[in-house]
Nucleic acid binder design. Structure first.
Lengths: 228, 228
DNA sequence: AACAATATCTTGATCAGTCAAGATAAAATG
DNA sequence: CATTTTATCTTGACTGATCAAGATATTGTT
């Protein structure tokens, strides 16, 4: 007879990645499933099943096979800590180290799991306890409070004047392209007649420059309406 | 019948640590053995045997079971890259991030394996392509050239005037203590009559302060004689 | 040289994380 | 509701890194 010892070891970076994935999807859609997590982590569903059983034991998620899957308070808090690390690191890499906003995501994805609390603290202080990362994502505070960024995906916006408040951070090519076209956080522009049939949006910047971008890309850019 | 496929995957951080260990011992004593490596990495000899067979296949070490063990040129170069990373990171953590020289070793031990070449480059430039880390260890240059630091272990020094040029970086407590007593890199002092029987050395700093330290600790501090 | 001590090597096992592929349950469709 | 599709779960296997413990070689001693 085999005795199930369960897990004795600590939350490795693997665990942190699972928690992050669940959090991300809960934030995006209000809930998640084994399949979604598997897709996000590029792993088979069976692997996620196994992992969720472990995380349930550790009380990091609440997992009822085939029924429901969600973070516990503890799990959410752990996930938010990782997100905080990730975003502080991204901002650090851009502001202090002078890296480009299109290349910091990968690096932060690794560093978020290994940097000491002490170093993270230095970073936080050095940056002046910032509230948003280079892509406009809010940085959870020390207590795990996460500000909401309310913004419209550009592909759903009507014609009018807007300011860019956030851009999805995981498409490095898009970020590079946006940068080349002056479309960074805080940039303001006018959106012309949304001709959805063509799948192309046209933007006019204050410099007069016009930029076209596809709905696909526009879906990654989040804006808020401005009066001017 | 089982076909031996060998290793298909890349040099993980584990491999880097083995290479570093071999390098360190070759530098310290001119050669190394399975047992020494095992001791340094806190691993059983059998584990080292297995690893060395793999590294031999990868042409990173030259391993003749029970006969000899040494780095190949390629292995040495790989090891020096890791050392370069380690020392640049240590200096970065002290100079830019304001961490204490007694607490950067652990952090660098992890970061050395995960930081991108790009980020390392920024660090190198930001620090002005430095030649020595906070503990006085030389930083290998981009091409893997490693300057020699010639210095005497303090426990072998005669009475006279000396300057501290290097301190072993792996004893955090000692580093903390040295710092508290003003004994940092570049500090000059007079060493009094080495009374070896008692196992204690006495140092007089320019401030007039006298400090005693044991031979054990003194062995970790490396000095060069000065005229004054 | 013969024996003891030490260093090294081999073998079988374990652990975390994963996949493949088949089993099962739930949801959607007619 | 019966059937098909889809989602999920289970099982057995594999990989890299490791250890324990026994086997073997090398070295040192008398």
């Amino acid at each position: 007879m085999k005795i199930e010892l369960g897990w004795l070891l600590m939350a490795t970076s693997t665990v942190e990645n699972y928690l992050k994935a669940v959090l991300r999807q809960e934030e995006a859609t209000g809930s998640t499933t084994v399949g979604e997590v598997a897709k996000e982590l590029a792993v088979t569903p069976g692997t996620v099943t196994t992992m969720m059983k472990h995380l349930d034991e550790e009380k990091l998620v609440d997992y009822q096979p085939r029924k429901s899957l969600s973070l516990t308070l503890e799990g959410r808090s752990a996930a938010l800590k990782v997100v905080r690390r990730h975003r502080l690191i991204e901002l650090f890499l851009v502001q202090i180290m002078g890296l480009d906003w299109s290349e910091v995501h990968e690096e932060a994805e690794i560093l978020e799991h290994v940097i000491s609390d002490r170093l993270l603290d230095r970073i936080d202080v050095m940056l002046g306890e910032p509230t948003h990362d280079p892509h406009g994502d809010p940085i959870p505070d020390r207590d795990g409070n996460l500000a909401q960024v309310e913004a419209t995906p550009l592909d759903e916006a009507e014609g009018g004047n807007y300011r860019i408040v956030r851009v999805s951070d995981d498409d490095s090519d898009l970020l590079g392209w946006l940068d080349e076209n002056g479309l960074t956080i805080g940039e303001e522009f006018a959106l012309a007649h949304p001709n959805r049939a063509a799948g192309v949006l046209e933007i006019s910047r204050s410099t007069g420059a016009k930029v076209q971008l596809g709905v696909q890309a526009a879906g990654q850019v989040f804006v808020e309406a401005i009066s001017a």
